[in-house]
Design a binder for these strands. Structure first.
Lengths: 195, 195, 195, 195
DNA sequence: CCTTAACCGAGACGGTACGTCACGTCTTAGT
DNA sequence: ACTAAGACGTGACGTACCGTCTCGGTTAAGG
């Protein structure tokens, strides 16, 4: 008896999805998006190359599925009692995501490959939309507490903060000093609050 | 500055550098970084593949040289009389750089390829350092005018603003609404000024 | 005639044998032996690939069965009253078999594939044995009529004539001129009769 | 010293043509035409697969070149003093070609693959044309000796004899008895001479 | 009519080879 | 001094069929 709905795969994916996803992300982390090959994933995951192509038409689609299906890159929504605390926590998470192994390699490679694969781009859009949706409650709490005017734009704040981290870490490749997080949050927060 | 001594190539480049650079950037714009091939550049620029390899060891190095050598992607430092005006001009330039053809394709491709090529990464770091150096005067004028406390951090402000644009345009791939620029500048500026 | 006992399949063959055989021969004629694929036959005959493999272990076996089971490639034994006339009729039939559409494609492909499949080779051997057995009566009549010495070797005569056709049509790929048949028969016949 | 015109290959072929041709024919003999793979030839000849494709667009073209370029399958034109003797020698050569290892496997495979590859077919046509041209002198001598009427058709005679051998050996796969050769020659010769 | 055994469809899979593309290296010769 | 021409080994691409397996239906014969 194959308990539950359907056992191994719920009709959407090969039998060894897990091994495949893990192999994909491992290799992505190790060699970057360009260095990632479908053959490599096949070999490492013990699956035949044709099986991969049967399910995903391109490298981008495979990586995209691996990111979604393997559940790394999660966001824990903080609740520290103050908007400042919450934002600092969020920004710190972003910094960690992009700099702390082992996630960083995957995250940077995946996000950086947005320009290379429409499939991946779609997936990344979804990733951000999801994040934003979940971060929204932080701002709702802040508005309820009176820390933020009701017409403040959470998306803008997050874009500013997360964008700064990306620019610094990935594009300018400059280390993030310890006081970067509070200073960034402080600047943005004042601007938003004194509206 | 390449004027002076020799015209064509002063010992540091093949004879048809210009054609090569243009072919490189054209193809980069047309097909992205991954789709760009050395063979393609050779063919389009009418130069032999061997010649390219003689001068640049990798695709990244070639693109990097092309970006520097062809002088696209320039920044005009504004002077509108107010910090707000200057920042808005700068941010608008960034938005244009990433969204307005024909530069946008090159810029996005090149910056997005930072994760793929150390050579390119170095080049991009230089690009940003150069930009920041030239933008500095905007902030000096603002301090002189009293619009900004002397201990404000220009780099942080630029990172926030430019990073937000990148995140929105490239990673989240959401169109930039008309009022994005003033709103972003306003938020950051208040935060910085009320320090 | 397969009526009688069971109609569809009397335990020796899949239910849709006819469709399968026809698909096989059609594809054989259209694309040659090498171009013929089991998957193609499956698709065209509306039968599952597994079913084909359940009944025939190889392409050769399938083609072989198709040739036997579909009853194309028949030989009508002539009786013109003279050995010369009979032989000319037989040779002409061979020429037609190898050159006149639509049978020619199947015949050439099948016979030519003898070198590729033991199964097919066996089948072809049977085909020739059958032909020879039925042609034998032509020679018996000729002996009875005194046109041929009783120790003449019919097999040799047929080999010479049919072989010449094959060599010319398939190996040398030269068109068969109108007077080829009488000239060939004449040569062989004189040789045999003057023994 | 690379004597003469151009050394290894006279502009028509890769550097290791010989190894390639030999590998091709060996594998052809060992596994037949269908079993022959380009990758196999590449591996065995120590040459890369792409190199093979650079020079020959298909398996047929490769085999064809190998047959021509390696000079196996030669014909020695006999001169025994009588037409009968010459023809018997020729037919025996044909029998040997098709039955005696190691040539037989190559010959049968190559000739049998005529139905599979236009390239090969062309090559085989050339092979036969060449043979016929060289065999012609046998018949000229016979005419000069008065053994054959001047209007006899050598091509027909050869087609009859060689065709019979092919039919028997390859298609009917029946062993060639010792007296087959003289009997076949005798039959054909009487027919031709009593013209 | 109902069972039961033979037959079939579907879908996934590991595997081999295909023919192609671009890589980066090398040699030879030419300008 | 620089370049053209072009052969080559190499790795990966994405595809086509191969032949096999498992599972869950369908048929249709025969009690």
């Amino acid at each position: 008896m194959r308990e539950g709905v359907s056992g191994t795969g719920r009709g959407a994916g090969p039998r060894r999805s897990q091994e495949i996803f893990e192999a994909t992300l491992d290799l992505l982390a190790a060699q970057g998006y360009e260095g990632l090959t479908v053959e490599g994933v096949a070999e490492r995951s013990g699956v035949n190359k044709t099986t991969l192509y049967r399910w995903w038409p391109s490298k981008g689609a495979l990586v995209s599925a691996a990111l979604t299906g393997a559940g790394r890159l999660g966001l824990r929504v903080p609740d520290t009692g103050t908007l400042r605390g919450d934002l600092e926590a969020i920004v710190r998470q972003v910094v960690d995501l992009l700099t702390a192994p082992p996630t960083s390699a995957v995250a940077v490679a995946a996000l950086g490959a947005v320009t290379h694969s429409p499939d991946l781009a779609r997936s990344v859009r979804g990733f951000f939309a999801d994040r934003l949706a979940r971060e929204r409650e932080v701002f709702e709490r802040a508005v309820a507490r009176g820390e933020l005017p009701p017409d403040a734009d959470p998306v803008l704040l997050i874009d500013l903060l997360a964008g700064a981290v990306w620019l610094r870490v990935v594009l300018r490749q400059q280390p993030v000093e310890p006081d970067f997080v509070p200073r960034a949050v402080d600047t943005v927060l004042r601007g938003a609050a004194t509206r």
